[in-house]
Design a protein around this nucleic acid. Structure first.
Lengths: 243, 243
DNA sequence: GACTTTTAAATGTCAGACAATAAAAACATT
DNA sequence: AATGTTTTTATTGTCTGACATTTAAAAGTC
């Protein structure tokens, strides 16, 4: 089933890798129960704490779940898209903050990916998703909204657009690009005027989606990207000048 | 710095969360050393094995690295894009295999995302990346190639296309979509004729990229998607009929 | 037969110890 | 004094053995 040479490095990492490989390769099926910690320890010829460290590594990646009690143990976890979103967002956020990705780079990626979804969303969006888009646009038009709440609404709008493509793979891949940008977006203060322009652009996107016009939606997203980058550039320039 | 209520659930998970939050929020800086395991155990009022389980959870997510020796310890890890690729691919692969995502759904997502990269790649690709694309096309034209090697070459070609956009965020997000499809692609046997068509389409994509014609590249990718789905549909139909 | 209690198996946690490692400190040599 | 060698020390890695907690199934009771 899986082996473990007693050479050089971290036993718990090796054991985790062996089990992970078994899961990825399909040797271990979903919901299948792994041997108990004592049995694994015996099998790999290590102590129980070492096995436990290995299992915790796998648990951190949502590959297994553990259950206490008589019929408990470690079970291969079904990795759901919904669960994976959270990790994806966390990882993407850290990647952006730790690697000094510029606003422009992140922005470019985000809108490029959204444009990939737009034609599909124009074809398949549900009435509900369209309604969400309209609701968020209305919210964004309220002047009382704080910058943070405005950004959150922006994410919700784009999330609805992406989900409208009705493709879980796309939604998953995009979760990182869209939501991870929120900290960057939060660095920007929106003036009444810039908000007005963006609400207008959002409306035109929603219109295009409603009319099933994918090409038009792509055009609007191009405009929105240009506007967003322009606003950001202005904010950064003003901030630099005031120093 | 971080707290830990002694209520209900998994201490190691709680401790891992507390430390993870400190990293994500920026309280802990890159390369900063965490307190030693003994100090953490004392701080959280738990035993060292429990602290270690928590640290292993974080290590599994590449959030920390550990070092033995006098000046050793756990250090906040810089999460590089390159490191994150591997996890992204593993997770995406599992998501596809565990959630019975159809070939069409995965294929649609993949090509939609690639089309998002195409215009940028047409503008920015290096000579080296273009050469890689040509090399892989040539390799794909060799009839002796096994189906698996052909698929691997296909991934390499598309990887070069995506990397040509010169946007690490895009490359990262796409790694999952492109590479995770390989197991699905491996289910398909390519006839000499279908390979010929695909090589032809790949060439036209490379031409468009070379000429800086993003719109043309997008058109070609549309054709390639249609062809890929057609081949897959034929293979699946034939397989179903032979049963 | 239905409800309650006991039992057993498993994970969760703890305490204390020793091994392995790697850097710094102390020492010896030239 | 500079350099090379040995010792010390701090830290992670691992082991052993124990107890606590949880949960389901088995045994017992009404």
């Amino acid at each position: 089933m899986k082996i473990d040479p007693n050479s050089s490095a971290n036993l718990s990492a090796q054991i985790a890798k062996a089990i992970r490989d078994s899961i990825v390769s399909g040797d271990l099926i979903i919901d299948e129960r792994l041997p108990s910690e004592a049995e694994l320890a015996d099998y790999f010829q290590v102590s129980r704490p070492t096995v436990r460290e290995a299992l915790k590594r796998l648990a951190a990646q949502s590959l297994i779940r553990t259950q206490r009690g008589a019929t408990g143990g470690a079970f291969v976890n079904r990795l759901s898209f919904k669960e994976a979103y959270a990790d994806q967002v966390t990882t993407s956020t850290l990647l952006l903050s730790m690697n000094e990705v510029s606003f422009d780079t992140a922005c470019e990626a985000r809108y490029a990916l959204e444009r990939a979804c737009a034609p599909l969303s124009a074809k398949r969006r549900t009435a509900d998703q369209l309604a969400t888009m309209r609701t968020e646009i209305f919210r964004q038009s309220q002047p009382s909204l704080t910058d943070e709440a405005y950004c959150a609404s922006d994410v919700a709008f784009h999330r609805a657009l992406v989900d409208g493509a009705d493709n879980p793979v796309l939604s998953y891949q995009l979760a990182g690009a869209v939501e991870a940008m929120q900290p960057l977006m939060n660095m920007i203060t929106f003036t009444t005027r810039s908000r007005g322009i963006m609400v207008c652009l959002h409306s035109s996107i929603a219109d295009a989606i409603e009319n099933g016009d994918g090409a038009e939606a792509i055009d609007c997203l191009h405009n929105l990207e240009a506007e967003t980058r322009k606003i950001a550039a202005d904010v950064f320039a003003a901030r630099a000048a005031s120093k």
